[in-house]
């Protein structure tokens, strides 16, 4: 299986390839052990950044859905999710954490 076929396979699978993911392939083009088209490859895909005293920033390929799986309104790629409970735009952050003096636990 050459690299080009793998890229196509993963785009069809809805998984965005990154340089790091490509590095997960051996030089002969075969996936590292354990990687298969039905399972996203290792490497940075989605990240959730927990900001001290602030929201959770979610970056990468993901969906935000309600409990029935219906997509919620979303107008940008990278989103900030409310963590303090005071946002009027939940699940998104609206900066209210600053007004209420929200504090997260000290990060280790």
């Amino acid at each position: 299986m050459d690299r080009r076929q793998l890229v196509v396979a993963y785009v069809v699978d809805g998984v965005r390839m990154s340089a790091t993911q490509r590095d997960a392939y051996d030089d002969d083009g075969s996936p590292d052990s354990g990687a298969s088209p039905s399972r996203p490859l290792s490497g940075p895909r989605q990240t959730i950044v927990a900001f001290p005293d602030g929201p959770l920033l979610v970056r990468g390929d993901f969906d935000i859905v309600d409990p029935d799986g219906k997509p919620l309104r979303r107008s940008r790629k990278t989103v900030a999710l409310c963590r303090c409970g005071a946002s009027v735009l939940k699940p998104y952050c609206d900066g209210s954490h600053k007004l209420i003096g929200f504090k997260t636990e000290p990060e280790s």
Partner: peptide, 16 residues
């Protein structure tokens, strides 16, 4: 309305 949500994202990225 757009800026309420957008800049709550941007301020985190801009600061750190």
């Amino acid at each position: 309305d757009e800026h309420v949500e957008a800049d709550a994202v941007h301020e985190q990225i801009a600061g750190r």
